[in-house]
Design a protein around this nucleic acid. Structure first.
Lengths: 240, 240
DNA sequence: TCAAAAGTGTTCGAATTACACCCATGG
DNA sequence: CCATGGGTGTAATTCGAACACTTTTGA
């Protein structure tokens, strides 16, 4: 934007898109939301949810709008990941895409996922082939969420208000594709003082039942910058 | 890019720029490179080095081209940070900017910094007012480099082939605005096995002289993903 | 000879890991 | 009553933080 020229009139303009990598958690597994593309090119293939940026909206606005169109919901955790600008990435016309990741509780949004887009949840390890460079985007998003969650308690955004420790552990294990020792996990968790134990139990997953917890919202916000260290083998992370 | 439509013909197109936050180190302090803007709007103010993306180049290509124009050099460490898309961020015309940070050894590139741009190195804490949203970009770049360097040995990109431990420590202290205990620093450093001690000494900074070291390139590449932990108080990092 | 910077070890507390058994309950 | 998943404690080790003095040498 800062080349030595009086005007921008002799510059080229390009399409700008936003593509969302929507992570969801259902209490058992981490999944991503994909849509079946109903038009050419690449009709019938799976794709991230995306759309073009319009003249008066910011990138964040566009990401929120697109996500709302798909899920019907607002105030979802959304964070920019990266811009993809390979000139050939869209065969129709050069398009720059800015990716975002979203974190949502699958059960909460289940009813509202609009059927018109043929949206479907896929377990992270069973994602189908995707159009264009969307697979690369997903890979980068996975790395990003690993980095982010290694340093900030952001994964709580994927959980309902009440959740159990086994659910939380499933989540961390899925995000990092690893097994975590339950006793050590609980110890680190209680050290954060982020959780408040409820009297109620979730009996859907076992006969004994697991106690529900809720987030201490105040401490969550205060300590979001604090480093956590839930991951025994952070070597498994790859570059951001 | 994936809205249900047959063609992209009714979409809006925008200017796309790349702005580079060029970090440099001279053995004593971390600095950033700014240019004095020679044209309106904002003529005479300081600015990041930037330019528009052309039709056939990728974002990475554009960043490299712009950096080469400024410094005359290639193969500089360059990494994308973020896209800025506020509709009003450039008063002339809506422009999306993708920022990159570059890491260079000031002495190596000194001679080649092109004078025609009135480029100047500023110590990080003494940066002047910048145009548009460039100050926000610099702040984000500082956070980004702190995160990156907390997890990867990327700061070596700022150093010459031969460097001393005191120089390296200055660098880390500047990046994190903190004082580091020299004995603990050296212990962690030797634990990485990334450094090879040379026979030669640098006597420019002291009478006793400090031994030069060089990077073990092979281990550097192998271990780039490994987590280091040089920073005593990572709490000081703020969100990425 | 002395000022200025380089270089070097130890101790303590905290954090991390590894590891195994009992509990509660619904079917 | 038993199979299933939930919940809990300890010991050994590693890691990180705090801390101060000696060395070298050019001016």
């Amino acid at each position: 934007m800062d080349m030595p020229m009086k005007q921008y009139s002799d510059q080229n303009r390009f399409l700008i898109a936003v593509d969302c990598i929507v992570f969801g958690f259902d209490g058992e597994h981490l999944k991503i939301l994909l849509i079946k593309r109903g038009f050419e090119p690449e009709k019938g293939k799976w794709s991230l949810m995306g759309g073009f940026v319009t003249p008066k909206e910011s990138l964040d606005d566009a990401a929120n709008r697109i996500l709302t169109q798909l899920t019907g919901l607002k105030d979802v955790y959304l964070e920019q990941i990266q811009a993809y600008g390979n000139p050939m990435r869209d065969p129709i016309e050069r398009t720059l895409s800015v990716t975002y990741f979203a974190l949502i509780d699958i059960h909460k949004y289940e009813a509202q996922i609009s059927d018109q887009y043929h949206a479907e949840w896929f377990p992270l390890k069973e994602t189908p082939q995707l159009i264009f460079d969307h697979e690369e985007m997903v890979e980068t998003a996975k790395k990003k969420i690993r980095y982010k969650a290694a340093l900030h308690p952001v994964l709580f955004e994927l959980l309902p208000k009440k959740f159990t420790i086994p659910q939380l552990q499933n989540l961390y294990e899925d995000v990092y594709s690893t097994q975590i020792d339950n006793r050590n996990f609980v110890r680190k968790l209680t050290a954060t003082k982020l959780l408040i134990k409820l009297a109620e139990k979730d009996k859907s997953a076992s006969k004994k039942g697991a106690f529900y917890f809720k987030l201490d919202k105040k401490k969550y916000k205060e300590n979001f910058q604090a480093f956590l260290n839930f991951i025994p083998n952070p070597d498994k992370l790859t570059s951001v």
